[in-house]
Structures are given as structure tokens and as C-alpha cells.
Nucleic acid binder design. Structure first.
Lengths: 197, 197
DNA sequence: AAAAAATGTTAATCTAGTTTAACTTTTTTA
DNA sequence: TAAAAAAGTTAAACTAGATTAACATTTTTT
């Protein structure tokens, strides 16, 4: 199973570093394939995050639940992207975030217990993960600027243009949460946009 | 000069990976020490960012200037921290951000032209930078949640507790920009807080 | 196919934070 | 040390977006 499902991961890694067949075999021997159903949690706030996960298929949301019980979505992950509470994973401390499946989701999971072995066995993975995290960091920095310099309407337009495929498959109230606004206000924005065209 | 000023950098790196003396020598031979005066720009929005910079002393702000001419500060960097527009640096595309000195600032600069050589010569640096960027990414993610789930007042209180040293040395209007509010509103928040105690 | 649950809409009222503008205090420069 | 520039304050009027609540539509379950 991992041999078949691991193909997407190896193909993805090969865009960044080139592994030998032996290295690919080691990698696949150390990771786990797993299916989750819609609604299931991959990480729960308060637990220690044990896995970095590569999404083979499906869709997840990562969110923080505040004291008033409100969800704040920081990230969606679809095919060929990653998900986990990296802060919790690295320090093995309680997670600030939940990661929950919005669709049935297939993952390849890198356990905390093996990731250091993997870095030791395949040093090229240090380079690979450095590059992945760089990209994630850059995206995160840009989002901070957008959250301050754009109006809610412009943030929505940006999101729609940037991630047209994600918008299709996710309920609006989650998009509102990602944009940092209420679902009612997003609804108003959308009706204004229809009117303008 | 680099030998003397590089000490802080080597000490910092040694917290993450241990380099041999030969590796340390290679590293210092490939980087540049430079002083900037208060007000000078290390990176200008629109230029390509040529350097990743480690701060030896002083203080910088990284900010985006929007179409209305307003500054949005994403990050301050003091001693033992990094600064650069990483997106621009990695892709060698025009920068979205300015990096400007708030104080006279001493830096050690990693040029784009040598960083790949450095990774090749000292693979441990891949690990080192992976860890640094992971930390930066985690901080950035947390900031997104705070920007959505905390009021301006609570964001200010958080900032003050988290970075008491930074607050001392930076003008209030820059802190307001970092918090995503106007200087007038920060002034109001501060007077309320004094009143509450 | 009906009922229930989840999602989305509309509109009135409210509030956190902005804008504008005049003023005070502190820092820098001549 | 005086003048100018930069930084910080206060308060009134305003607005983007939140809250509340009632209702409409779509999806899921029985």
C-alpha cells in the first residue's frame, strides 16, 4: 500500500532534491500511510502533535479554538501539501491547533520518533524540508500583511483568485473564518460583488 | 574584523549544530560584516533581496508599504535574530518588503551568490537553517491567530509581555503599525491600561 | 420522501477601531 | 539654547465589520 501511495510523495520530493532508489526505499519504510474520514481529527489542540503529514488526497483545516469557542482557521491543506502543528511537533509540547478533515483524507505521516533517523539516514531531507518550510513561512508572512493592509472584501477577492479550487470544495463559513470575518459579513461581501458585475 | 564580529554568529549557530573549526573558518570566509546607520535601508521594496542578514547589534524593522503609502511592520529584528525578505531572496524576485535600520546596526550578511556554496561545503547548515526557519514559521503562524482572535488591547498586552526589551527601544507609532492599529488608538489603549492599575 | 441538521442570507442595531484635527512633549539639529 | 522636526496625546465624528435574530436553502439521515 505505502509503495503505491508513496509515489505521489516521492514525485513531490523529487521536485526539490533527487533521492537514490535506496533512499526512496528507506524513506517509505519509515513513514505510514493512513486514511481519515471527514470530520476526524488528525491533531487535537492540547495533545502533543506526533506527526508531520503529507496530504495524498482530501482536504484538512487547521484551526485554533479560542476561549469563546470560536474557530480561527489558519490554513487549509489539499493534495501535495503538508499539515501539522509544527510548533507542537518540534518541541513535543501541547498543540495550539486542531487539524481536522473536511473531506475523507489520505495521508503519509512522518512520526516524531523517526524523523531524526530519517534526517540522519538521508541528509538531503534536511535540504528538502528547509525548502518546504521556507515556502510556508513566506506564505505566512504575506498573509500577515494582507490581514493588515487589505479590507475584508479585498482579502476575499485575493483568496478567490489565489485558490479557486479550494473555494469550490469548502463551506463558506470556513472561508469566512480563514479570512478573519463572520459568515454573515462574507455573505454580504459576496452579494455586493455579484451586484458590481 | 569578521573574525571578531563573527564570534556572536558562531556562538549562535553552535546552539543548533556543531561545526568543526575548519567549517567555521570556511563560513566566516564566505560572509560579510557590515555596519548600517539609523535610517538606512538594508532591503528596499521592489529591489531584489541579495542577502540574508544576522543582526550582531542594533535593531531593524521589516515593513510593507501599501498603495496608500502606509507602513505595515511585520517584524522587528534585534541582536541574535535574522532579517531579510526571504521570498525575494529565495526566488530572486522583487521584494515586497523594506528592511530599515531603527538604530545603527551591525550585520553579518549571507549573499545569495555564496549560500548554495555554503550549503554544499557545510551540509550541517541545511539543518541549521531548517531549524531557524521552522522557528520563524511557528512564530508567524501564531501571530496570524492573535491577529484574528485577540482585540487590539490584548495584542498590545501580549506584545509588551513577550518583547519587553523591544518595546523600550522602539517608537510607539511603530509598535502600533506592528499591531495593525493606528498610533492614536494605541495611545488610547495605553491610557486605559494606566487607569486600570 | 420526510425530517433533521447543516449551511447560507438578509437586515437592524451596535462597537472596536479609524480619521481628522488641534495640541503637547520629546528629540534632533543648527 | 533656540528652532525645527519627530513623536505622542486627546477628543469628536465616522465606518468597517460584529452581533443578533429570523428566515431560506441545501445536504444528510432515517
Amino acid at each position: 500500500m505505502i509503495k503505491e501511495k508513496g509515489r505521489a510523495l516521492l514525485e513531490y520530493i523529487s521536485r526539490y532534491v533527487s533521492l537514490t532508489e535506496a533512499e526512496e526505499a528507506i524513506l517509505l519504510s519509515k513513514v505510514t500511510y493512513r486514511k481519515y474520514l471527514k470530520g476526524q481529527f488528525i491533531v487535537q489542540q492540547g495533545d502533543v502533535c506526533k506527526y508531520e503529514c503529507f496530504v495524498i488526497s482530501g482536504c484538512t483545516k487547521m484551526f485554533h479554538m479560542d476561549n469563546e469557542g470560536q474557530e480561527h482557521i489558519v490554513m487549509f491543506s489539499i493534495e501535495d501539501w503538508w499539515t501539522a502543528d509544527m510548533g507542537s511537533f518540534i518541541a513535543q509540547t501541547p498543540a495550539d491547533y486542531n487539524v481536522q478533515c473536511i473531506e475523507n483524507t489520505e495521508l503519509i505521516m512522518f512520526s516524531y520518533d523517526v524523523i531524526e533517523d530519517l534526517y540522519a539516514a538521508i541528509p538531503k531531507l534536511e535540504r528538502f524540508f528547509r525548502q518546504i518550510i521556507q515556502k510556508a513561512f513566506i506564505a505566512s508572512q504575506k498573509r500577515i500583511v494582507r490581514s493588515f493592509s487589505l479590507s475584508a472584501k479585498d482579502r476575499y477577492i485575493y483568496f478567490r483568485n489565489q485558490y479557486p479550487k479550494i473555494e469550490q470544495r469548502i463551506p463558506q463559513y470556513m472561508i469566512a473564518s480563514y479570512l478573519g470575518i463572520t459568515k454573515e459579513f462574507l455573505s454580504k461581501i459576496k452579494s455586493e460583488l455579484i451586484f458590481e458585475q
